[in-house]
Nucleic acid binder design. Structure first.
Lengths: 228, 228
DNA sequence: GGTCACCTCGCTATTTATGGGGAGTGTAAA
DNA sequence: TTTACACTCCCCATAAATAGCGAGGTGACC
């Protein structure tokens, strides 16, 4: 695991190819998921499959992406919900493009609501795959962790996030708004006038460069400034 | 690491005490953090310190909690920002109550915006602590992972979360609202009338049991239903 | 001792969101 | 095939948020 020494984005691609060989699996993939689709992805899938995946918006219906969202521990693909018609079609398409019939995906969550997946996929029977998971689970978890650390390091957007810290009152305000209070209720809870409250919302909105209250709350949640 | 076999909440307390001895550190703590303060916590700190921590709202100013929020990899306490007056006072208070002068905290994030910390703390010089981190980092990461998995298993609130899945249009609506669009802009983006859009917002709000749009967006973000 | 950020309060007008009703289409699962 | 549910559109009245103005007191840091 000399991953820790790699330093550039292109290195990650090389490393993941080496890892695939070390673990003796057909494919190994890391991809970072957000609203705009994959933000960063490296892996050993065929380029045609990756392109097809993006073009067809498979990320919106891929049971792996959806299922892992609700999980914390590594997820064996066979325990996901493949029952819907769209899911089965996707599965057939994937296998036809060289993706293994077996897979293990590890959800990874970082600061600012980051969500990524680290996946190993292979073509084999259930028993063989179960043995593989049993043997390699811990190493794969660590690998996913270190891979994501590298991805975060390489992420260019982190400069802007350092921006303006919010004051305690602003954070309280956004937190209460996030749990559904309206401005009058928040003002009452904080024992201040609604006018004062509005100043906090406005200044928080300004600091977060948010377009409205909902955006400010969403941004604060996304950056991990508040928790609900 | 027979943690994987433990099954009850009370077991976790026993396990963490054993782990403290295995790793030869003064303290080891796991705590799950949210807006209402700690939701679940086990560890080896003195009960007086835990009570004091909660009573004084230290969770709002603890540099460990705040600093780890922005990080993914394990964080050595000495690299956190202890410069503010409140932070330094907190640090003195903590050390006076038996918390070590050294510490390593691992941020853990799970589904539905879960945020937890796994911490090892000790009283020793910098060099000794650096060696400890170097040797045990990987094991501690795995330990944090498995500990959180157990905590999630024991969490009673998970039933209600399975509730109503949102439709694609509802998810698109909430996503666009979360990135700051107002209803008119969202409607235009989705090429539907603003009236129709309102139906989505309303039904999403209903499904999420949210009190208003901001709450619905916050809840969806929190549950990991949308990503921005 | 001055500066700066934070906290607090006030006004008016305009824009935007919410609540509650009804109604027709299509696709997909049972 | 029938039953769902998602998707689309419309009206009206009220509640809430936003934009723009201003102003004084407190505490921390240099």
């Amino acid at each position: 695991m000399a991953l820790e020494t790699s330093s550039a984005l292109s290195d990650l691609q090389t490393v993941i190819e080496q890892l695939r060989d070390v673990f003796h699996v057909d494919h190994m993939v890391y991809h970072w998921v957000n609203a705009k689709g994959a933000r960063l992805g490296v892996g050993t899938y065929a380029p045609e499959w990756v392109q097809r995946y993006v073009e067809r918006g498979y990320i919106r219906l891929d049971p792996v992406v959806i299922g892992c969202f609700q999980k914390f521990h590594p997820v064996d693909w066979k325990f996901l919900d493949w029952s819907s018609k769209a899911s089965r079609e996707f599965q057939h398409d994937a296998i036809a493009h060289g993706v293994g019939n077996q897979g293990l995906s590890i959800p990874i969550r970082g600061p600012h609501g980051q969500y990524a997946l680290f996946t190993a996929s292979h073509n084999c029977d259930d028993a063989t795959w179960a043995d593989f998971i049993e043997d390699q689970r811990r190493d794969l978890i660590l690998l996913a962790h270190y891979f994501n650390e590298k991805a975060l390091d390489l992420e260019p957007d982190k400069i802007q996030d350092a921006a303006q810290p919010l004051s305690p009152r602003e954070l309280e305000t956004l937190t209460l708004l996030a749990i559904g209070y309206n401005r009058a209720q928040v003002a009452q809870t904080l024992s201040i006038s609604e006018h004062t409250l509005r100043v906090y919302v406005e200044s928080a909105r300004f600091k977060l460069s948010a377009l409205n209250t909902t955006h400010a709350v969403a941004t604060a949640l996304n950056r991990g400034l508040i928790v609900i």
